[in-house]
């Protein structure tokens, strides 16, 4: 069974071209939030409490990047005995939203493949697979990179 690692943060991944992170936008002031704010607007000058779901930009530019050379503690999924595969984390600047959003890089993308300012796109990914579930997530990868 395919299960999003967090419900409501990205859309179904059956169409890679239509894959998007999902935020919310305040009906009163237009501010956008990710992770989604559904109950109240966090603009201090706005008392809005109605927000609509809005897809975030599909592409952005690398703000910074790093990796995790050691296994993080729980609740990061995985079996502690398995050999550790470092993962890459990318902070991506979205021009329209004027915000920076984190994510893991697509499998195979290392820090050597990235540079600050590089164009990247959001793609569906898998965080972890166990006997019952495939936990789905979002990944960033250089625009036009291999799926």
């Amino acid at each position: 069974m395919r299960t999003p690692v967090v419900a409501g943060w990205f859309n179904a991944d059956d169409d890679p071209d239509g894959f998007r992170l999902l935020g919310t936008r305040c009906r009163m002031c237009g501010s956008v939030f990710f992770p989604r704010a559904d109950a109240y607007c966090r603009n201090p000058s706005c008392a809005g409490s109605e927000l609509d779901e809005v897809p975030l930009s599909r592409t952005g530019t690398v703000w910074s990047y790093t990796d995790g050379r050691y296994r993080p503690p729980a609740p990061y999924p995985g079996t502690p005995d398995a050999p550790w595969e470092p993962y890459t984390v990318v902070a991506v600047e979205l021009a329209a939203e004027r915000m920076v959003v984190l994510g893991q890089a697509a499998p195979g993308v290392t820090v050597a493949d990235l540079a600050v300012g590089m164009a990247v796109e959001v793609v569906p990914g898998v965080l972890h697979q166990d006997a019952e579930r495939t936990w789905t997530t979002w990944h960033w990868r250089p625009v036009g990179g291999p799926v």
């Binding site: 967090v6 910074s64 990047y65 790093t66 995790g68 609740p75 990061y76 984190l102 994510g103 600050v116």
Partner: peptide, 29 residues
């Protein structure tokens, strides 16, 4: 899942040094 500190470990494996690494790389660039 309502706790952002729990979620960053769950979803990103983002330990504190991951954030420190992002800041350091940004300074280099």
């Amino acid at each position: 899942p309502d706790d952002p500190d729990w979620l960053r470990f769950r979803v990103l494996g983002a330990t504190n040094p991951v954030y420190f690494g992002l800041y350091a790389r940004r300074r280099m660039a």
